[in-house]
Structure formats: structure tokens, C-alpha cells
């Protein structure tokens, strides 16, 4: 294996990992504050992609713009879709269970996840009907960049990958500013540390929780659009495995730790690409390559839980055991 090939794998891994990281931020913020694994977060992610696609398909002028100019408009659509869904889910499914036994909100989260997936599936064009002819389970096409990838040394950099990394960086910079400098951000940190005391100090914890859901969903929408751009498709069930990976990333970086989420995402993305790439590169291990990618990611999760359960950067969760 040459260095170039290796670097190519790392580059692809960074783009993939940045996307995981963007999704993982939502998991980790919500978990840090209310200790809920929001299984539906993968579906918030999926909604973002479909929201953006809806804007693209239903507002014809957008289609005639250059993609780079259309993207901000699509982004707004995607964010609205996923944020609205997240706020609704928080308000009507999770909030009433704030003081319930811990199994109850987890099961509700599963329910929300299945419900959202199936809601989108309902609108899938069925074979023989509808405008777009796709098979029942086929993914839906997403616009992609037309231009050629950039060359850097021998390494190819896809336009969509470059965009993903830039956007992820901007998002994290904003998040860092938000958490450290704004009132709401500090309230969020306080709530994560000790919700009861935060409430006593006059912080509206309900609002803080909604903000965490909103931010998480908005980031997920961004991630979803980068997913669409990179793979040229979105599908109703894309949230399942992306969500699983993103949660792995959140645990990897240290649950509750927003920077950890991005670090975990990058590590997972790179590890995944490099492992499969290296395995596929040699004849003896060839068959253990691409098809097994998710298995390696899962093994990584198990190993991290065994070796460093608090994650790479350390978890930040109020201990209420």
C-alpha cells in the first residue's frame, strides 16, 4: 500500500467522520442534559435531507441555480424540517416523561424513530404510480456537484468532501462560541452539570433542553445535506445506521462532551475507511473489506467500551446514579 492510497483513505475518512461528528453533537448534547439516548436523532438527520430535497424539487427556480447557490436555500429547508420534527418530538413525546422511570423515554425514543421513518416511507412513490419511478425501497436521488475533484499531491479531494469538512469546522466553531460566550450556552452547561441546581438558579431548563434538541437537529440537517451531496441519494432508512455510527462516535469521544463528539466522529470515520481500505487492498484479507465496514465500526465501539468507557476526551455527564 502506497502512502498516497493511505492518505486518500484518511481524506475520505475525515469527510465521513466530520459527518458523523455533526450528527453525534446532537446525541451528546441531549444525553449530557437529560441522559436520554435519543434514538430518533438519526431520523432528525434523515428529515433534514428530505427537507432540503423538497425545497430543491418543489421550488423550481432553485433547480436552475448553480448548486453552490442553491445549497443555502436547501439548507434552510432541511433545517426547518429537522428542527420542527425535533421540537415536536421533544414537546409531545419526551417532555411528558421527564420524571418517568428511565426505560420509558428510551422506549418512546424507539417509537418516535420508527414512526418518523415510516412517515417518510408513506410518501415514497410506489411502483407504478407517482411521478418519480423508483422501487419501493430504492433511495431517492439527491443533486450532486458536477465538477471534477481537486488534486492535492496524488490525493483526490471530492468537492462534496471538501465542503463537508469546511461546513463541519464552521459548525463546531459556532458551537464553541455558543457554549462559551452566550447566556443560553452557559445555561446549557449549568443544566448539564446539575439540572436541579440550575433550575434553582433561575435557569429555564425546559428551554435549555429545547435548545439542545434544536441545535442537534440543525447540525444533523447540515450533516444530512452533506450526505446527500456525497452519495447522491437520500433514503428513509438512512438514519438508522448513520445514527448508530454517530452514537458510537459520541461514546468514542466521551458522551456529553461536544468536542469529543467531533473528535470521536473523525476517529471513527478515519478508522472505518482505513480499516476497510487496508483490508481490501491485500489479497488475503480482501473479502473482509467494504462489506464488513459496519462490523469493524461496531467492534471499535465494543473495544472502546472495554478499554476506555469514558471516551477519548472524557465524558461530561452529571452522575446521578
Amino acid at each position: 500500500m502506497t502512502t498516497t492510497v493511505f492518505l486518500q483513505l484518511v481524506t475520505n475518512g475525515i469527510a465521513q467522520g466530520a459527518m458523523y461528528g455533526l450528527i453525534a453533537v446532537g446525541y451528546t448534547m441531549v444525553y449530557g442534559i437529560i441522559q436520554l439516548i435519543n434514538f430518533a436523532h438519526g431520523e432528525f438527520f434523515m428529515f433534514g435531507g428530505f427537507g432540503a430535497l423538497a425545497v430543491y424539487l418543489w421550488i423550481p427556480p432553485v433547480q436552475h441555480l448553480p448548486l453552490l447557490a442553491a445549497l443555502p436555500i436547501m439548507l434552510v429547508g432541511g433545517m426547518i424540517a429537522s428542527v420542527v420534527i425535533a421540537v415536536l418530538a421533544e414537546r409531545f413525546a419526551y417532555r411528558p416523561l421527564r420524571n418517568a422511570p428511565r426505560l420509558a423515554p428510551l422506549i418512546t425514543a424507539i417509537g418516535v424513530s420508527i414512526l418518523l421513518q415510516q412517515l417518510v416511507f408513506l410518501w415514497y412513490p410506489q411502483p407504478g404510480g407517482g411521478k418519480v419511478q423508483v422501487g419501493v425501497n430504492a433511495p431517492v436521488q439527491f443533486p450532486t456537484f458536477a465538477g471534477k475533484p481537486f488534486h492535492l499531491g496524488g490525493v483526490l479531494i471530492q468537492r462534496a468532501n471538501l465542503l463537508t469538512v469546511i461546513v463541519a469546522f464552521l459548525c463546531m466553531a459556532y458551537l464553541a462560541y455558543f457554549v462559551a460566550k452566550t447566556r443560553t450556552g452557559r445555561a446549557m452547561q449549568a443544566t448539564a452539570q446539575d439540572p436541579d441546581t440550575a433550575r434553582l438558579m433561575g435557569i429555564n431548563t425546559d428551554k435549555v433542553i429545547v435548545v439542545a434538541f434544536v441545535l442537534g437537529a440543525a447540525f444533523a440537517a447540515v450533516a444530512s445535506i452533506t450526505y446527500g451531496l456525497r452519495f447522491g441519494q437520500v433514503s428513509y432508512d438512512m438514519g438508522f445506521s448513520a445514527g448508530l455510527k454517530a452514537f458510537t462516535a459520541a461514546v468514542l469521544g466521551g458522551i456529553g462532551n461536544i468536542y469529543g463528539a467531533m473528535v470521536g466522529g473523525l476517529v471513527l470515520g478515519i478508522a472505518e475507511q482505513v480499516t476497510t481500505g487496508v483490508l481490501a487492498n491485500y489479497h488475503a484479507t480482501q473479502q473482509w473489506g467494504t462489506a464488513w465496514q459496519d462490523v469493524w465500526a461496531f467492534l471499535l465501539l465494543i473495544i472502546v467500551l472495554l478499554v476506555r468507557p469514558q471516551g477519548l476526551l472524557g465524558e461530561r455527564v452529571a452522575d446521578r446514579a
Binding site: 417509537g111 420508527i114 421513518q117
Partner: peptide
């Protein structure tokens, strides 16, 4: 599946 998702949510909310 849609209805089961809904059923899970409603059960946890109203008759856990």
C-alpha cells in the same frame, strides 16, 4: 410499523 411506533409512544405516555 408506523402504527406500532405510534403505539409505543402512546403506551409510554398514557399507560406505561
Amino acid at each position: 410499523l408506523l402504527l406500532f411506533g405510534l403505539a409505543l409512544i402512546l403506551m409510554m405516555r398514557f399507560r406505561p
